[in-house]
Design a protein around this nucleic acid. Structure first.
Lengths: 202, 202
DNA sequence: ACCTGAACACCGTTCAAGT
DNA sequence: ACCTGAACACCGTTCAAGT
């Protein structure tokens, strides 16, 4: 307890940790201000955060920091990109309830750090700034889209399987292999191929 | 009124249309069962749909049908793919509140129709079935990701601009051009480049 | 100044009761 | 058989009242 501590819960981190506990238990979508308050034995709602959105924004940025997806700097750029993309995919796959928030909040400091590292890595490999930034954005698009679809695909989706099998151009086994692989492994190789083509003719 | 009509609102479409009216006004996220009931002057809730999810699933598939994004068949495959992707992007951009649902529901009949058209088009152009299906999934990933990020980017995001400008490797004007373009125009050309490379060495 | 907890205006969903 | 609307168990947010 520092000398400047005032009130029951001056420390924002106490709230962030409580939020993480609850999210681990019930998912982001079922996080409520009341549950945070209950866990801390505090009235709804003592405000470090003006409203629920402010809390979620802070939790999201902390989530990005904890995901810790930046690889070692020695990797060649294409492996580096692949590592980051798969790391993001895995982190988000474990918490798909984050997805709806990615488009609604401005990036926080930790997200920004990832962006800058990515751009620097690709510029060191010979990409222009604009190319590097576009590569970053395209990778994010793929990750978000892949995580979004992963759950639908993973669930089986018999209707889709049946209908597609009806075209008769592929064995069911092959079809399942295509659909049930990690979605990120579909677009990511294509992205890296395209990037490789661009940097070579720089 | 058909002879088999029973009860006040036998017709599911009445509910779908009411839902669309409300969504146009307040967005998908603020659609409630009560609002649908009120608009139809019906008690909450006479059930054509077992619950809110069932209603949303039906509305989503109808939304896909209305988006009407399949282009004319005469286009070469790369333009055809680009047309579909941009059409989806535009449709979803107008209703971003749909995004959270894309990963939670199984595909409906209308979504399936789009998938099959896409796969057929690419197979006619020389792609294998697996390639065509992967191309479709990668395109969907890009569209979902692009729409998700579009709103964050469009909003300005001064923190990101400032921080990146600090790298000094690009003029602010160039930076804004990269960030503020339609997000779909970033990844889509890369995807099509990569696909072109694959079909040629088939 | 700091914190409480009742209150307000909502939700999705259920179900006894009416027609 | 069909439909109602009150009720239940929740929300986010506000704010008079207490300490």
């Amino acid at each position: 307890m520092s000398k400047t501590q005032k009130g029951k819960y001056q420390n924002k981190n106490v709230y962030l940790n409580a939020a993480f506990d609850i999210i681990k238990e019930v998912g982001v979508d079922k996080l409520t201000m009341r549950k945070v308050a209950d866990q801390l034995d505090v009235s709804p709602m003592y405000k470090h955060f003006a409203n629920k959105d402010e809390l979620l924004k802070a939790v999201l940025d902390e989530f990005i920091a904890r995901a810790d997806i930046l690889p070692a700097d020695e990797l060649p750029w294409d492996q580096w990109v692949s590592f980051v993309a798969k790391g993001m995919f895995r982190a988000l796959q474990g918490e798909t309830s984050w997805l709806p928030l990615l488009g609604t909040f401005d990036v926080g400091d930790n997200a920004l750090q990832v962006t800058l590292s990515f751009v620097n890595k690709l510029m060191a490999a010979g990409f222009s700034f604009a190319q590097a930034l576009e590569a970053y954005l395209a990778m994010i698009h793929l990750v978000i889209g892949a995580v979004t679809l992963q759950s639908t695909m993973g669930r089986g989706n018999q209707a889709l399987l049946d209908s597609i099998a009806g075209t008769g151009s592929i064995s069911t086994k092959q079809l399942k292999q295509t659909i049930f692989q990690d979605q990120i492994d579909i677009g990511l190789p294509l992205l890296i191929e395209a990037l490789r083509g661009r940097v070579q003719y720089e």
